[in-house]
C-alpha cells in the first residue's frame, strides 16, 4: 500500500533510461548535424599531431575502425551505444596507452566527494534558513539577520571562486588556491594527507555552498509560507503543541517534500556549475579532466567523461526518486506530483 510500488519504480526507471538516452544522444547527434564532418576533422587534426605519438598509424586505424567513418549513421549510432553500454571508450589519445575509462575513474572520486559535501551542506543550510524565514514564530532578531545570508545567491559559483582565490589564497595566503592536495604529501590514509585534502577542498566547497544555499532558502521560504496557511498547521497550534514540534513535524516535514523534488531537478545544474568550479580551482575531478581532454583534443576521454557525468547525475536523481515515497506517503497515489 505504501512505499515503493512496482508501477512507480518502473516509471522512474524508464525516466532514468530516457535521461541517459537523451543526454548521450545529444552528444552523438549534434556534432554530426554541424556543417562538415567532425569525425574526419578530428582524425585529420589528430594525424597532424600524429608525429608526436608512438603507434600513430595503429591509433588512426583503430580510430577509423571504431567510429566507422564509412558506416551509415545508424550503424555508427548503434556501435556508439554498444560502447556506452559496456563503458568501453577506448584509449586516451593524449595519454596513450592509458584507457580513457581509467582516467575517468581516477577523477570521479574527487568530484563525487566535493559535490556530495557541497550539495549536502548547501541544501541543509539553505533549507534551515528558508524554513526559519517562512515561519511566523521565528524570533524577530533572527528574522532580521537571516536575509543577509542570501547575499551571494545570485552570483555564479565560479566567479565567487575566483574572488575567493584572489582574496583568501593570494592576498591573505590562508588556504591553498588550486589542486586537490599538495605534491609534498604522500597520498594515502594518513592524517597529514587528509588534512591537506580538506584544506584544499575548503575554498571550492565554500564557493559552491555560499552561492547556492540562497536558492534553496528562497524556495523553502515560499513552501513554508504555504504550509503556514494550511489547516493542519492551524490545528497543530490549537492542539497546544510546542512551537518546535509544530515547526518540524507540521511545517518543515511538509515543506521539504517539494524542496527535495527541486533538489533532484536541480542536480544537473549543480553539476554543470561544479565543472567551472573545478576548472577555476584546477581541482582534479571529472569537470577539470573534461576540460583538459577538450584542450588536448582527447576525444575518447571527452566522450567517456561526458557520458559518465550524465549517467552519474541520472543515477543520483533516480536514487532520490526511489527515496521519495518513503518520505511522502502520497506519492504513489498522486501520479501528477512531478
Amino acid at each position: 500500500m505504501r512505499g515503493l510500488t512496482k508501477e512507480y519504480v518502473l516509471q522512474r526507471f524508464l525516466m532514468y533510461l530516457l535521461t541517459i538516452w537523451m543526454g548521450t544522444t545529444l552528444i552523438f547527434v549534434i556534432p554530426r548535424l554541424a556543417p562538415g564532418d567532425p569525425v574526419s576533422e578530428m582524425v585529420g587534426r589528430l594525424s597532424l599531431d600524429a608525429g608526436y605519438i608512438e603507434n600513430a598509424d595503429k591509433l588512426i586505424a583503430s580510430w577509423k575502425a571504431r567510429f566507422g567513418l564509412d558506416a551509415p549513421i545508424h550503424i555508427q549510432y548503434l556501435r556508439y551505444w554498444g560502447n556506452v553500454f559496456r563503458l568501453n571508450f577506448g584509449y586516451s589519445l593524449s595519454h596513450f596507452p592509458t584507457e580513457a575509462w581509467s582516467m575517468v575513474s581516477k577523477a570521479l572520486p574527487w568530484s563525487l566527494g566535493l559535490l556530495t559535501v557541497a550539495t549536502v551542506l548547501s541544501f541543509s543550510i539553505g533549507v534551515t534558513i528558508g524554513s526559519l524565514m517562512g515561519w511566523r514564530r521565528t524570533p524577530r532578531l533572527l528574522q532580521m539577520f537571516l536575509p543577509s545570508t542570501l547575499t551571494f545567491t545570485a552570483i555564479p559559483y565560479f566567479m565567487f571562486g575566483i574572488m575567493l582565490i584572489y582574496l583568501v589564497a593570494f592576498e591573505l595566503d590562508w588556504l591553498p588556491a588550486t589542486g586537490a592536495y599538495s605534491r609534498r604529501v604522500d597520498p594515502g590514509w594518513n592524517l597529514p594527507f587528509i588534512k591537506n585534502v580538506l584544506s584544499h577542498a575548503i575554498l571550492p566547497v565554500v564557493s559552491i555552498v555560499l552561492t547556492s544555499m540562497g536558492g534553496w532558502a528562497l524556495g523553502m521560504r515560499g513552501l513554508m509560507i504555504s504550509v503556514n496557511n494550511e489547516d493542519y498547521f492551524l490545528l497543530a497550534q490549537v492542539k497546544g503543541l510546542s512551537p518546535a514540534r509544530i515547526f518540524f513535524r507540521y511545517g518543515v516535514r511538509n515543506a521539504i517534500l517539494p524542496a527535495l523534488t527541486a533538489l533532484a531537478l536541480g542536480l544537473g545544474g549543480l553539476i554543470s556549475g561544479s565543472i567551472l568550479v573545478e576548472f577555476i580551482f584546477a581541482y582534479p575531478g571529472t569537470g577539470y579532466t573534461l576540460y583538459q581532454s577538450i584542450i588536448s583534443q582527447d576525444y575518447t576521454v571527452t566522450q567517456a567523461i561526458a557520458n559518465l557525468i550524465i549517467m552519474v547525475t541520472a543515477t543520483s536523481v533516480f536514487l532520490l526518486d526511489l527515496l521519495y515515497p518513503f518520505i511522502d506517503p502520497r506519492i504513489t497515489y498522486k501520479r501528477n506530483m512531478r
Partner: peptide, 18 residues
C-alpha cells in the same frame, strides 16, 4: 528527464566539435 541533464557537460562536448 531533460531538466536533469547537466547542460554544461553536453554543451562543452558540442562546443568542442562545433
Amino acid at each position: 528527464s531533460a531538466i536533469t541533464i547537466p547542460a554544461l557537460v553536453v554543451l562543452v562536448v558540442i562546443a568542442s566539435y562545433v
